[in-house]
Computed example of a mutant assay.
Amino acid sequence: MPEPQRVPAPHGLDPDGFIAREGSLARVQGAFRPVVAAARERLGAVWGDRLHSAYLYGSIPRGTAREGRSDLDLLVALHGEPAEADRTAANALGAALDREYGVIDGVGTLLYGRERLLSEAERYDMGWFLACLCTPLLGDDLAALLPRYRPSSLLARETNGDLARLLPRWRTRIAGAADTEEARGPLVRFMSRHLVRTGFTLVMPRWQGWTSDLGEMAEIFGAYYPERAAPMRVAARYGREPAGDAGVLRLYVDDLGPWLAAEYARVHGEKVLRPEEATP
């Protein structure tokens, strides 16, 4: 494949060539600081001594959040694996914050046990995610126990090399959704973002940089795969401004998604199965 003619200069790395941690509490915009402070206080109240640490990720710690449009994204590390009661508590906490603070549009909380986040199996997936894309909010930062990361093929494989396994689940979710734009909108948003990030990490080791901006991800991907640039730009647009378009969902699971999964496997291989995935 020839080298792309127009591609942004690589960035997002530290002087030694490792992916720089994005986001910080200092970048949280003033409008979002009260909800971040409330989240910090309530996380400790909900989990007490079982809470090891908590983190922000996404647009709020990057300083790019939009009032009334952006969600609050949290990663919670517990002492011990989370149980169903923990997920119920996380949902209740998120619903309360969303109800009380109109500046956000929903709360998403990832729950993990400390040992799993530090495990070899998660080293280039959730470990990388925590170390590079999460901002410490509460407790001791687990990033101190993780390595630094380069934009390598191994990182690409272990972060997004499972698209082929996800597509059947996506088709099931689409089939089970109500036939309304309101029901399809969240699916379009979620799948759009996932495809754009997968497209970007497909070419990330060649580009040798990092970005979390969906539009830039799509442009970088398109420079290496110009024949697929247009649908990836569509996905980037819908990732930011979703609409419940049934045709877009069909494009994702019948065309762009299968092509991207096959190309990803060809270039980087498939993500290693986790124990829970390998269990019949």
Results as ranks from 00 to 15, higher is better:
Met232Leu: 13
Gly102Asp: 03
Glu122Asp: 14
Asp105Gln: 12
Arg228Asn: 03
Leu273Asp: 09
Gly222Ser: 06
Trp210Phe: 15
Ala243Ile: 06
Asp254Phe: 04
Phe129Arg: 04
Thr201His: 13
Tyr149Val: 04
Asp98Lys: 06
Ala92Gly: 13
Val203Phe: 04
Val267Asp: 08
Glu67Arg: 15
Ala230Phe: 11
Arg33Cys: 01
Gly239Pro: 01
Tyr112Gln: 13
Asp140Ala: 15
Ala39Val: 02
Tyr264Met: 12
Leu166Tyr: 11
Thr159Lys: 05
Leu56Ala: 09
Pro168Cys: 05
Val234Thr: 15
Ala89His: 03
Pro205Ile: 07
Asp98Glu: 14
Arg21Trp: 09
Arg66Ala: 10
Met126Ala: 12
Val36Ala: 07
Thr172Gly: 10
Thr109Ser: 14
Arg66Tyr: 00
Glu41Lys: 13
Ala175Gly: 09
Ala89Cys: 05
Ala175Asn: 04
Arg87Val: 10
Gly209Asn: 11
Tyr264Ser: 13
Glu120Leu: 10
Ala45His: 08
Pro147Tyr: 02
Arg116His: 15
Ala96Ser: 14
Asp98Pro: 01
Phe200Trp: 03
Tyr264Arg: 10
His79Lys: 13
Tyr264Val: 09
Leu249Ala: 09
Arg33Gln: 10
Arg228Leu: 13
Asp179Pro: 08
Tyr225His: 15
Asp245Gln: 13
Pro231Gly: 04
Pro82Arg: 06
Gly12Glu: 07
Ser153Cys: 05
Gly44Asn: 09
Tyr225Gly: 00
Arg165Glu: 02
Ala89Met: 07
Arg206Phe: 12
Leu51Thr: 03
Pro2Thr: 08
Ala144Phe: 07
Asp71Phe: 09
Pro280Gln: 07
Val248Pro: 00
Asp16Tyr: 02
Arg42Glu: 10
Arg250Trp: 07
Pro10Glu: 12
Asp179His: 14
Asn91Phe: 12
Thr180Phe: 11
Met1Gln: 11
Val36Gln: 06
Lys271Ile: 01
Trp170Gln: 08
Ala229Arg: 13
Pro226Thr: 00
Gly199Pro: 00
Arg150His: 01
Gly12Ser: 07
Ala65Phe: 07
